[in-house]
Simulated scan of single mutants.
Amino acid sequence: MSTRTSQRVALVTGAGSGIGQSIAAELGAAGWAVAGLDLRPPRDAATALMLAADVADADSVRTAVGRAEAALGPIDALVSAAGHYASAPVAEITPEQWTRMLRVHLGGLANTARAVLPSMAERGGGSVVAITSELAIGGGEGEAHYAAAKGAVIGLVRSLAAEFAAREVRVNAVAPGPTDTPLLAADSPWRAPEYLATLPARRLGRPDEVAATVRFLLEEGTFCTGEVLSPNSGAVI
């Protein structure tokens, strides 16, 4: 039986680290009951509930969503932040690498959205925010499979926004630029002073800045659906 309280319930994928972890913390501090999903959940997760799930596996997602709703109540917001990053020249990207990139990013959003949107639509309200990337907008050398998968996320976001708008469910995306998380190795070219000098803001974005953008879309941006907000230090203007 659900232990639904007056708290709004958010499901955040990739909540175990990086941007997803910051989003979960931001929403928790704002009073949301947060259920976090992660492939390898940390033991010290600061969420109301942390569940192990592979977002690329629809059955795993459905099971986790059911457990979250049983513990916290109906899901009011979904944040799809689980991700995977790799770079390689296009000729060296294997079929398996293309498939994995698409399954995690596009499949992860599709699986979680399909698990929560029918209930949101039936209740007449809800919000979905997907984390994409500035590379989905501007492309990037040596990142064809990552940029393609993130671009597909934007296409899905806009299609879902059109499909569910009449039922008061909003679907948006946030497209960060390079962000200071463990996903970027210490020797990453995105951390090089030469690259940072090309950014109008002259620095990497911070996870808390991305989290604040997500919270805006969930709580204040009630006029937004099908939109892509870009907290990317000016990497794409």
Rank of each mutant, 00 (worst) to 15 (best):
G155P: 01
N172Q: 10
V171D: 09
S60C: 06
F164S: 10
A91I: 15
S6V: 12
R8L: 12
V236S: 03
C224D: 06
G36V: 05
S230W: 02
S17T: 13
A175W: 03
L184Y: 08
S6D: 15
R8S: 10
L199M: 11
I237S: 14
G205M: 06
E122H: 13
L51P: 00
T198M: 04
A192P: 04
G142I: 06
V153E: 00
L196E: 09
T63D: 14
L183E: 09
V210R: 00
Q7N: 15
P193A: 05
A192E: 13
L51D: 08
A82F: 08
V61E: 02
T225G: 01
A30F: 00
A148W: 04
A130M: 07
A45R: 09
A148M: 08
E122M: 10
P89T: 07
L27C: 08
G139S: 05
N232S: 08
V9F: 10
L72R: 02
A46L: 09
P182F: 12
P231K: 05
V228F: 03
L160D: 01
A185I: 06
V214L: 00
D76N: 10
N111K: 00
R67A: 13
T3A: 14
A197F: 07
F164D: 02
L183S: 09
T179D: 04
G108R: 06
A86R: 15
S159L: 12
S159N: 14
V174M: 01
T198N: 00
R123P: 03
W98D: 06
A88R: 13
P189D: 03
E168F: 15
L109H: 06
V236H: 07
F223Y: 15
A235Q: 12
V171H: 09
L102I: 14
I19W: 09
R67K: 14
W32N: 06
T132V: 08
A24Q: 03
A115V: 08
W98H: 11
A10H: 02
T179N: 01
R62F: 07
I19M: 13
V9Q: 09
V61I: 10
A86N: 10
H145V: 01
A81C: 12
G139P: 05
E96T: 14
